[in-house]
Simulated assay, not measured.
Amino acid sequence: MTERTADVGRGISLTYEELGDAGADPLLLVAGLGQQLHSWPAEFCTRLADRGYRVVRFDNRDIGRSTHLRFRPASLAAMFLGRFPPQQYDITDMAEDTAGLLAALGCESAHLVGASMGGMIAQTVAARHPERARTLTSIMSTTGALRTGRPALSTLRLMAAKPPRTRETAIAGAVRMFRHIGSAGFPFDEAGVRERAGQAWDRDPSTGGVGRQLGAIMRSGDRSAALRAVTAPTLVVHGDRDRMVRPAGGAATVRAITGARLETIPGMGHDLPKDAWPVLVDLIAGHARREDQTRSTDAPAP
């Protein structure tokens, strides 16, 4: 995959990569909080592309090689009090970035797949731009409803740690975090975590963007009412061992989106464990394929 950059409007450029047949149906992968495009592993993307999709992964604003804003993020305590800098954006702004990327790529619509914060972004794209969403798959995400799907207190303590200052401390911090929030029911891939954390540091050693993205989540509040506008067939995937977004977040998403269905993966936490890839790929591709077949059946005869 080759990195490219697209102007998505409003002074924001997003870095992205594509895999698969350029003429195939597009499937857009939206990354989570502080996660760069390679948080969707190349082999995982290849498996989706092998199912017949044009797979796109990208860096959200404020991370990786996409546009970074420069204001100082609010502290975690200030966020909980609802105090944000005037420049603070929200999930809606990030959803507009994503819709702008689809337009820049010439995609009228796509299968939207988002993990964690990426699920929030994908949900919002589907709600605000229903014509852009063929299907929606929301993984380990939530609606932003108060006291629903909130992190465990132990997770919040880890999130409040000081930002890393070196590559080594960044890698150590990632291992510590993913040991905590990762999938207790699957083997822990420490080598993979270290590799991705090192790659993330090499691509973007800045730390302020994570705080600004967290501010976007906190400022957005409860999006349950807005999600009533989602018309795309929706699949919600959640693990039963998630300490970052409790399983109640997935259940709340299903309640908020008409017709959504929930698939729970036993043992999965807040990551994409390699041993769960076959199940995840089957769920994502199967959900997309059913809608593709429906669209083909419903198309008018020539």
Rank of each mutant, 00 (worst) to 15 (best):
R179Y: 05
L262W: 02
D292M: 12
P266Y: 00
I181P: 02
R203L: 12
G208S: 11
D240F: 01
R261A: 05
E131T: 11
L280W: 01
F80N: 12
G100I: 04
M218E: 02
C45D: 08
R203Y: 06
F188W: 01
S39H: 13
R203Q: 11
T231N: 07
R4D: 06
V230C: 07
L27V: 13
R176L: 09
D282H: 11
P273H: 05
A252L: 08
L28V: 15
L136M: 11
R289S: 09
V281E: 10
T297I: 10
G239S: 06
W277C: 09
P130H: 09
Q293C: 10
T2G: 10
P266W: 03
P205N: 10
G221P: 12
V30R: 05
G185F: 09
R70A: 15
A145K: 14
V175I: 14
L146K: 12
A78G: 00
T142S: 14
A170R: 14
A184S: 14
V210M: 15
E291T: 14
G23L: 00
F44R: 05
V245H: 03
Q123G: 05
Q213L: 09
P130N: 02
R65E: 09
R246M: 10
A122F: 04
L227F: 15
F44W: 08
H287P: 01
P205Y: 13
T294I: 03
P163L: 10
D93M: 02
R203A: 15
R150I: 14
P205M: 08
G11W: 10
R70P: 00
R132A: 15
E17T: 15
S220Q: 07
F188G: 04
L14H: 03
A248K: 07
E43G: 03
L262Q: 11
I139N: 01
T264Y: 00
A226W: 04
L29D: 06
R295M: 12
S296T: 14
D222H: 00
V193W: 07
Q87R: 13
G221N: 11
A74L: 03
L76M: 11
A299T: 13
G267H: 04
H129K: 00
D202G: 08
E3T: 13
A191C: 03
L146E: 14
